[in-house]
């Protein structure tokens, strides 16, 4: 079943439809959250938050593009979480590059080397583009979520992969 057709069912709190949505999009949502917060534990929590929001607000969705709507919620939730973390923590441990800061990577992150390099070495929006692309989003969809021209997103992806390649070859 297409994601757009799941939306009205989820609005009626159909658990089967919700489970289908979760299974089809959990990696995408996680990758979006992780791309923003660079912390897998926080990204996991945010992923859960996103689905709870979708459960309660699916009725507000209209038309086509349920996936983009979902991922926009994921991105906004993540950005809000960062802002909150910034306000609450004594040290500037998480700073959103959009707000002029730099990211540091959670050292306890349990990820592979490539993912770690992506989180550590790539800036915005390259990091998000790389994660979303490899979580299964098409470039057109990534461009829509991030508000970029499609060509720019493709270009940035190509550049980001080169950066990762150099980083990983340097490590090897």
């Amino acid at each position: 079943m297409s994601l757009d057709s799941l939306a009205p069912k989820i609005a009626r709190h159909d658990e089967k439809a919700f489970a289908e949505l979760y299974e089809k999009t959990r990696r995408l949502v996680f990758s979006v959250c992780l791309g923003v917060v660079k912390n897998s534990a926080l990204a996991e929590e945010l992923t859960q938050d996103v689905f709870v929001i979708v459960w309660s607000r699916a009725g507000e969705f209209r038309g086509k593009g349920f996936k983009t709507w979902l991922l926009t919620i994921a991105r906004n939730s993540s950005i809000n979480a960062l802002k909150k973390a910034r306000r609450e923590t004594a040290t500037d441990f998480f700073e959103n590059e959009h707000l002029g800061g730099r990211y540091t990577v959670d050292e306890q992150i349990e990820t592979g080397a490539v993912l770690k390099a992506a989180l550590d070495k790539l800036g915005e929006p390259d990091r998000q583009i790389v994660l979303m692309k490899n979580a299964g989003l098409k470039m057109k969809e990534i461009a829509q979520v991030l508000g970029l021209p499609r060509g720019t997103a493709s270009w940035r992806y190509s550049v980001a992969i080169d950066v990762l390649k150099k980083e990983l070859e340097g490590v090897e």
Partner: peptide, 21 residues
């Protein structure tokens, strides 16, 4: 690189639907 990223993301992504529900 892409293959490893896909695998890393798949391994890291949460899968506990019961908790979500």
């Amino acid at each position: 690189i892409e293959r490893q990223l896909k695998n890393d993301l798949a391994a890291s992504a949460p899968s506990d639907f019961a908790s979500v529900l």
